[in-house]
């Protein structure tokens, strides 16, 4: 699971919202896979991505190069875009779990696939 997906996930289970804070990450195993670099896509995603959550997540994944604060003017620099690209699209969480910030419940991640099913007895 890439961090772009982690960034997009927001639990919504049968009408009950969790708040805006992102899911926590527990890493057991991670991987880096190279993908093609496309600055246009990154610029577009920059508006949509929750940047603070991405910085947090990439630090947990062991990549601390991303600056803590970013503004749209930084998108002109190739260096920043490369870092953004690496954090967003190339860091893969292979084994571990996602932690709900409100309830503390853990959603396991196996082979890169997070299991986001609520248990039926809870619903």
């Amino acid at each position: 699971m890439r961090l772009i997906t982690h960034n997009m996930i927001k639990l919504f289970l049968l009408g009950e919202f969790t708040n805006e804070s992102p899911m926590g990450i527990e890493v057991e195993k991670m991987e880096v896979r190279k993908v093609g670099f496309n600055p246009y896509f990154l610029k577009k995603m920059f508006d949509w991505v929750n940047y603070n959550a991405l910085v947090e997540a990439s630090k947990i994944m062991g990549y601390a190069e991303l600056p803590d604060v970013a503004d749209p003017s930084m998108l002109e620099s190739e260096e920043f875009l490369r870092k953004f690209h690496h954090a967003l699209l190339e860091l893969h969480l292979e084994e571990g779990s996602l932690v709900c910030p409100e309830t503390g419940r853990k959603y396991p991640v196996n082979k890169g696939i997070p299991e986001l099913r609520p248990y039926y007895d809870e619903v």
Binding site: K10, G112, I113
Partner: peptide
């Protein structure tokens, strides 16, 4: 899908329980 090396990210979830995706991003 993993064996076929799907490029996208996969999530195991039930769409009937709502999609756990942040608003306005897709």
């Amino acid at each position: 899908a993993l064996e076929r090396e799907a490029e996208g990210d996969l999530i195991l979830a039930d769409m009937g329980q709502g999609l756990g995706i942040r608003p306005g991003v897709l």
